[in-house]
Amino acid sequence: MKRSTATALGRHAVLIVGAAFVVMPFLWMFTTSLQSRAETYSNGSILPTSWHWENYAVAWEAAPFGQYYLNSLIMAAGIVGGHLVLDAFAAYAFARLRFPLKNAIFVVLLAALMIPTFVTIIPAYSLVASFGWIDTYWGLIVPRLADVFGIILLRQYFASIPSELEDAARIDGCSRVGIFFRIMVPLALPAFATLGIFSFLFAWNDFLWPLLVTNSDELRTIQIGLSAFQGRYGTSWNYLMAGTLTATVPSIIVFMFFQRALIRGIAASGLKD
């Protein structure tokens, strides 16, 4: 009894320290977001010393952030949707279908993971420019509709689903497409949730690509808007932190949404141990 209490206390002590490590930067962001500009340069305190709530309004009004939010949401929705649909099709093909050079193509795909994004940015930009997609939603979304990481993630998960389930469906007269939508997708929901979270965070936080392909406020995303607080002549840390905290909210919501799907998926399939 005593021993287990001590174990529990020890475990919680470790967890509390871990949680503090995670929460501390956010707390500091919050504190900084409430300081006056002068304080941000002279005051290193992590506990709030002043309460300039108006910083949030000032930061919001510094640029058309409403439009930036909308653009980020549209872009993120497009990219997440693209990843979930296109990655899943490709992943299923690699996991279950038989076609010539399947393994060779998969190895090439794996190799593509090792190419840094920055190497492909200029060619991708040239393509998008030649399509006339600079400063459009097309330019923001289409080049990023599918990604290798998602294909590999889903392929591994599909491969772990017993093929007996598919065979049974086939015997009952289910088509290949039916098997994909009725058997594989529901069973792989945890993997889809994981991919959804990753894709959303990637899209929401992406900076360089949206910066390159957009010029007008009508198409700019939230991360570019935030970078304007880091000016040539000094950084407005208080507004930057206020804006960044506001911009973090959708990420947290999406995480909670997909996390529920993740847990529900595991419970429903009963396959993941």
Partner: peptide, 26 residues
């Protein structure tokens, strides 16, 4: 489960609409 799929489909549809709704700077 189907509701989740439906939501995803709705998101995709919304994105497509948004895409077609915009025009190049010209």
């Amino acid at each position: 489960m189907h509701r989740t799929l439906a939501k995803l489909a709705a998101l995709g549809a919304a994105a497509t609409l948004a895409l077609t709704g915009c025009a190049a700077g010209g």
